[in-house]
Design a binder for these strands. Structure first.
Length: 353
DNA sequence: GGGCCCGCAGGG
DNA sequence: CCCTGCGGGCCC
């Protein structure tokens, strides 16, 4: 189909979501529909890895968003499943094609596209789909001993790969301007966003750069960022808002516009901006009415570990539910709730007893 | 959420 | 052809 390449795929910004592996492949993000590791021939014909999928995988994996520890591949016949998670019968080898390609990407300092699937770490997984999370570089490779020995007790060596997310300024796709415009059009065709939402999406990154030049002066860069934010909001926040059908998870209000469509906002529990630097992922986003969005952002409400809503200030005349409304399909992660609570209550947290 | 069982879509 | 794999959707 399309052209396979190392690095960004033109027109696909980090945050873009795809329903199934087939669509990930069709977007040229990953060559395969089942393997974790994707590889292509480099200029000299030798294979290098260009993408990986984080989708549950092995027990030795670890995901901390910016830092990822990945386990190499093994032939099927050398593994078995226990509690749904693959366990190895034999040590892995750096000569196995998938692992060798990762090693070569490390040596050549090639970036790796990271795609997270719905079976991955609950803190970062999208809802029933796959998300392109941008470029990572391999910072280290090593042969490690797996936490899980073989059934007969012999230790198993694995190919371990450490990756680190490239800084955000290197995540901007240097794509053709026209393709960005096309993507923008596609997104708006799917569901036209209200003007307010566009403005909100643009305001957030500008908070840090107070004396930023006027919009027109840095047109290409700003334009790219704008598309990225659009794609992210279009995918992550929209998923959450749709699942809740616009109903506020804190007060239960379902605000309707004149068009009979519910209006709600995707609120980040752990803010995106530094120093918080929370991830823009579904488990970190709540569907809130504008009022409760502000209440969350200014710490007028915090949420306890049992999901009960603690009103701290300024709630006269405003009702809140006893507990945060949650859905089976939208799993909010406690890590973000705790981060928010700790930020507003400090170390001495009475609700954590 | 785990287990099962039937897969497709490469690539040798 | 045949083999393989960080699927997928169903069941409960």
């Amino acid at each position: 189909m399309g052209e396979q390449r190392i690095g960004h795929i033109d027109g696909i910004a980090p945050g873009a979501e795809f329903h199934r592996r087939k669509q990930v492949k069709q977007a040229n993000l990953h060559r395969d529909t089942m393997r974790g590791i994707s590889w292509i021939a480099d200029v000299d014909g030798l294979d290098v890895a260009d993408a990986i999928v984080l989708h549950g995988g092995y027990d030795d994996d670890n995901d901390d968003w910016t830092q990822v520890r990945y386990t190499g591949a093994s032939p099927d016949k050398e593994k078995y499943k226990e509690a749904g998670i693959p366990k190895l019968l034999h040590s892995q080898s750096w000569t196995y094609q998938d692992n060798a390609s990762l090693k070569r990407s490390y040596e050549r300092k090639h970036p790796i596209r990271v795609i997270r699937g719905w079976k991955g770490d609950a803190r970062y997984s999208p809802i029933n789909c796959y998300r392109y999370d941008g470029l990572y570089e391999i910072t280290a490779i090593r042969t490690a001993v797996s936490k899980w020995p073989a059934p007969d007790g012999t230790p198993i060596e694995i190919c371990q790969i450490d990756l680190e997310r490239l800084p955000s300024e290197r995540q901007d796709p240097t794509s053709v301007e026209q393709k960005i415009a096309d993507l923008l059009e596609q997104q708006e065709e799917l569901e036209p966003l209200p003007q307010e939402e566009l403005e909100v999406a643009e305001e957030e990154p500008e908070e840090e750069a107070e004396d930023a030049p006027p919009y027109g002066e840095k047109f290409p860069k700003t334009r790219t960022q704008r598309v990225q934010r659009l794609v992210r909001d279009a995918a992550v926040a929209r998923n959450v808002k749709e699942l809740h059908d616009g109903e506020c998870q804190v007060c239960g209000l379902r605000l309707l516009g004149p068009d009979e469509k519910p209006y709600s906002e995707g609120a980040h529990i752990r803010p995106l901006a530094p120093p918080h630097s929370g991830p823009d992922v579904e488990p970190n986003v709540l569907c809130l009415c504008p009022n409760c969005h502000v209440r969350l952002d200014i710490g007028a409400i915090v949420i306890a570990d049992d999901w009960s809503i603690v009103v701290r200030a300024g709630a006269l005349g405003g009702n809140v539910l006893p507990k945060l409304k949650r859905l089976k399909k939208h799993k909010v992660h406690l890590d973000y709730i705790r981060h928010h609570r700790k930020h507003w209550l400090g170390e001495s947290d009475p609700s954590q007893e």
